[in-house]
Design a protein around this nucleic acid. Sequence first.
RNA 1: GGCGCCGUACCCAAGUGGUAAGGGAGAGGUCUGCAAAACCUUUAUGCCGCGGUUCGAAUCCGCGCGGCGCCUCCA
Length: 484
Amino acid sequence: MPLHLYNTLTRQKEEFKPLHEKYVGMYVCGPTVYGHSHLGHGKSYVAFDVIVRYLRYLGYKVTYVQNITDVGHLLGDTNEGEDRLLKASRLEQKHPMEIAEHYTRSYFEDMDALNVLRPDISPRATGHIVEQIEMVKELIAKGFAYEANGSVYFDVHKFHDYGKLSGRTVGELEAGARVEVKSEKRHPADFALWKKADPEHIMRWPSPWAEGFPGWHIECSAMSMKYLGESFDIHGGGLENQFPHHECEIAQSEGATGKPFVKYWLHNNMVTVDGQKMGKSLNNFTTLKDAFKKWKPETIRFFILQSHYRSTLDFSDEAVDAAGKGLDKLGNTVRTVRERMKSATDPGTTAPIDLARHKAAFLAAMDDDFNTPQALAVLFDLSREVNQFLAAEASPSLSSLQHIDALYRELAETILGLTFDDTRGDSSDALILDGLMGLILDLRKDIRAQKMYALSDKIRDTLKAMGIVVEDKKDGTTTWRKGQ
RNA sequence: GGCGCCGUACCCAAGUGGUAAGGGAGAGGUCUGCAAAACCUUUAUGCCGCGGUUCGAAUCCGCGCGGCGCCUCCA
């Protein structure tokens, strides 16, 4: 079955057919960098990371663009509203660009920890003011936008497809209670392309209209089309950006070019806490940095992949703990396979496991709109069979183990981005740790041989308290690994 | 008020017409000096409720109840 994905634009699953064979242009709305990233960001970017990884696995050459929004959006729909970056700037007594740089680094640090591959291009909004201004000029020239008092607005009545992504109509929007009427605008639903800056506004650029800053939605249109072309394959983002952000992007982009903007719109759902959305404005978020103090980043990634990207994911300590144990279960199998490979030879007992069947089931799950929970279930099924094999066979063949290991690498590591080798590294500290653990376990082996179990148990318990799990295997060997 | 989504075991969570995946937790067992890991057995005759369509529904339709998202910056 070929890859199918759910397209918000058509509200159904569609077979994926890129605009150009073997090439995929993909843009995902990145973070606004005025604070540390939280679990919600984690869910979003892990989800799109898996999508990129899977497209590449299928053989597509993917250009993945994800912006960094380093110019603030206003808090409210009025000129009096303060933008978020400026607010952080004032609170932290730093220049806005310093704030942006600081949290951009923080963002990548967290994403690296989650094993999220970096985008091919991470364009900054402030680095593309020229492109944004050019686009606004084009929209004015084509009659889609108008200037009012130094600001420029998009006239939603001029773009007849407005509402096609979110399923709304301009009429509904104007009847809606929450659309604020602003005198500068011709219609309440019109949105800003360029805003004239107040005298105290720090981030400002010259423009043909008034010195000011770009509107809320124009950066994504300008940057995505600059790097991916006027029409491209996939645009992703959080569900909450479907309207108005993405709706406005379509209007601006298609208004300016007269061409279809994006073929497939993908939206990921929210992380919730007690059933409520985790968000910056609700102040109920857990930052990734805080989560990493409690759980391994791999656990957070696994937790995220245990639910579908279009489903909400309810966060609780209990749920993440459970995910961590599940990941350990998978990891134990993989690590045991790798351990056994060291002493295995050919010929030996061949594993009676249909690896091709498991692989096909895994890929079928991924082909069905990136169903990672289903794909993980396949890995657990595989693990059970592998564990049965390992438990029953004293001398499994090396080639069997290699095939099993290769499958985990292909599916779990390459596609899902999970990692299992957490005990070894090549830093000098890791080498010292390896050496020390070897020494301790060697001594403990002698102690156990003398049946001094109280002492050997004390060593094991103490290491456990330090976060190192020691396991005595049935065959007399002892292994260790870092725990949660 | 408008648009939309969701409600599956103690918890998390797939499944969207063919007779309930997976993980965690719990119970019993095997193995082990013990512990852990692993394996085996077990835990929803039922998927919010009530109707309807169908040979057949958790899955489709209607009504009701409960929860949530968007309409304002937000992954």
